[in-house]
Simulated assay, not measured.
Amino acid sequence: MNNTVSFLVTACIGLVGAFLFQFLHIPVPFLLGPMVAVLILSHVTKWRFYWPKALRNYSLIAIGYSLGAAFTGDILKNMYTHIPMMTFVTLLTFSVSLLFSWLLTKFAKVDYPTALTSSVPGGLTQILALAEDLKGINLTVVAFFHTIRVILIVVLVPFIVHIPALQGTTSTLPSLAMGTSTTLPIWLLVVLYIFACIVAYRLFKRWRIPAATMLGPIVVTIILNVFVGIPAFDIPEWFMMLCQLIVGTHIGLMLHPEHLTHKKVMLPLSVASALALIAVAFLMAVFFMPVVENTSIVTGFLSLAPGGIDQMGIVGHEVHADVSMITMYQVFRMLIIYLCVPPMITYAVKRYRAK
């Protein structure tokens, strides 16, 4: 079976897995579906699978661009006055993550860099991409933990925000305009941002900056969109689904279930860590956010919930919460994750190898 046939077989299996998960209403179907389908069939069949890594890289560049485009000038201006509270809740969330990373190391015998990456709250696509870029991380363990967390968050968070007792006051922060008008033709914006993101990726990689595939596009998009004034364009939803499918298929081929040891300990720890992060976010939303930020409990909870910007934003829109506040908090945590976590984990990997 040559590479072309193997590639087509792999693509078909990933696509079937994506549509199956979508039909079953499983969270993040175009990432988890291909990942699970390719993972299973690559281990139970003798078929030859092939998936070019360049596809994964360019898909992550597109995802990095979409994350950078979330940082609008209005959001960054409003962030300035909310930085103390956002920093406090982010540090509190990371403290819970550090606790569970220690428990994972102690009771499941997982190396600390992998345990830390498994416990960091962030979007599934982003964290898995980050874990793969950082050498020495057990990708199977990271994927297991974050998949369990995403499923619990997607199932529990919408249920919690629809509790009648939580419906109350609304936030006073005005809604932010997410779009920007421009006289530049769309094709020119597309070409400009593609060129800038690829150059940023290659420069970050040459400079050996961790997670260069996503961090480079994020940084250059923020610079061009916010500080230079060249407005970002919207990526079609189908294209983002395609990028997730490509990344999910790639990750499925990278996973090795035989490396997942101490399963009886890992499952309870993964569930407990996800529930702990959700509980911390809920308590902060009830007792602190209404007082400090003058938000509703629902808005505060979605702002602090350890999910992705897209998922929490969709839920917030459905329950008429303050989407701008939710976006600010989620974007701020994402910024901290991508600026601080890669160097932290890289340092932990070096220390771990030295020992």
Rank of each mutant, 00 (worst) to 15 (best):
residue 4 T to Y: 05
residue 9 V to L: 15
residue 16 V to I: 12
residue 21 F to L: 01
residue 27 P to R: 14
residue 28 V to M: 10
residue 31 L to Y: 07
residue 35 M to D: 03
residue 36 V to H: 03
residue 38 V to G: 02
residue 39 L to F: 02
residue 40 I to V: 15
residue 42 S to Q: 05
residue 42 S to F: 02
residue 50 Y to Q: 00
residue 51 W to V: 10
residue 53 K to V: 10
residue 58 Y to C: 11
residue 59 S to D: 06
residue 62 A to F: 12
residue 66 S to N: 09
residue 66 S to M: 05
residue 73 G to V: 01
residue 74 D to V: 07
residue 76 L to E: 01
residue 76 L to G: 06
residue 82 H to R: 12
residue 90 T to W: 01
residue 92 L to W: 04
residue 94 F to V: 15
residue 96 V to W: 02
residue 96 V to R: 01
residue 97 S to H: 07
residue 97 S to T: 03
residue 98 L to A: 15
residue 98 L to V: 14
residue 99 L to F: 08
residue 103 L to P: 09
residue 104 L to K: 07
residue 107 F to K: 08
residue 108 A to Q: 00
residue 110 V to K: 01
residue 110 V to L: 05
residue 111 D to C: 00
residue 112 Y to Q: 05
residue 114 T to F: 05
residue 118 S to N: 04
residue 119 S to H: 04
residue 120 V to I: 15
residue 121 P to H: 01
residue 127 I to H: 01
residue 129 A to H: 05
residue 133 D to R: 05
residue 133 D to H: 09
residue 134 L to V: 14
residue 134 L to I: 15
residue 134 L to Q: 12
residue 137 I to Q: 02
residue 139 L to N: 04
residue 141 V to D: 10
residue 144 F to T: 08
residue 148 I to V: 09
residue 151 I to T: 11
residue 158 P to R: 09
residue 161 V to L: 10
residue 162 H to L: 11
residue 163 I to V: 13
residue 164 P to A: 02
residue 165 A to P: 07
residue 170 T to R: 13
residue 171 S to Q: 09
residue 186 I to F: 12
residue 187 W to D: 10
residue 188 L to T: 07
residue 194 I to G: 14
residue 201 Y to D: 10
residue 201 Y to W: 12
residue 202 R to I: 08
residue 204 F to D: 11
residue 205 K to Q: 13
residue 209 I to A: 06
residue 218 I to F: 07
residue 218 I to V: 08
residue 222 I to H: 06
residue 225 N to T: 10
residue 225 N to G: 09
residue 228 V to K: 10
residue 228 V to M: 13
residue 229 G to D: 05
residue 231 P to T: 14
residue 232 A to T: 15
residue 232 A to G: 06
residue 233 F to P: 11
residue 234 D to S: 15
residue 235 I to D: 08
residue 237 E to A: 12
residue 238 W to N: 12
residue 243 C to F: 05
residue 245 L to D: 03
residue 247 V to K: 09
residue 252 G to F: 01
residue 256 H to V: 10
residue 256 H to Y: 09
residue 258 E to R: 12
residue 260 L to C: 02
residue 261 T to R: 12
residue 265 V to T: 14
residue 266 M to L: 15
residue 267 L to M: 11
residue 271 V to S: 06
residue 272 A to W: 04
residue 273 S to R: 12
residue 274 A to G: 07
residue 280 V to W: 00
residue 285 A to P: 05
residue 285 A to R: 06
residue 288 F to Q: 09
residue 300 G to H: 08
residue 304 L to F: 11
residue 305 A to K: 04
residue 312 M to R: 01
residue 316 G to T: 00
residue 317 H to Q: 13
residue 317 H to W: 12
residue 319 V to F: 06
residue 322 D to E: 09
residue 331 V to P: 00
residue 334 M to A: 07
residue 335 L to H: 00
residue 340 C to T: 03
residue 340 C to Y: 03
residue 342 P to T: 00
residue 347 Y to H: 12
residue 353 R to A: 15
residue 354 A to D: 13
residue 354 A to N: 15
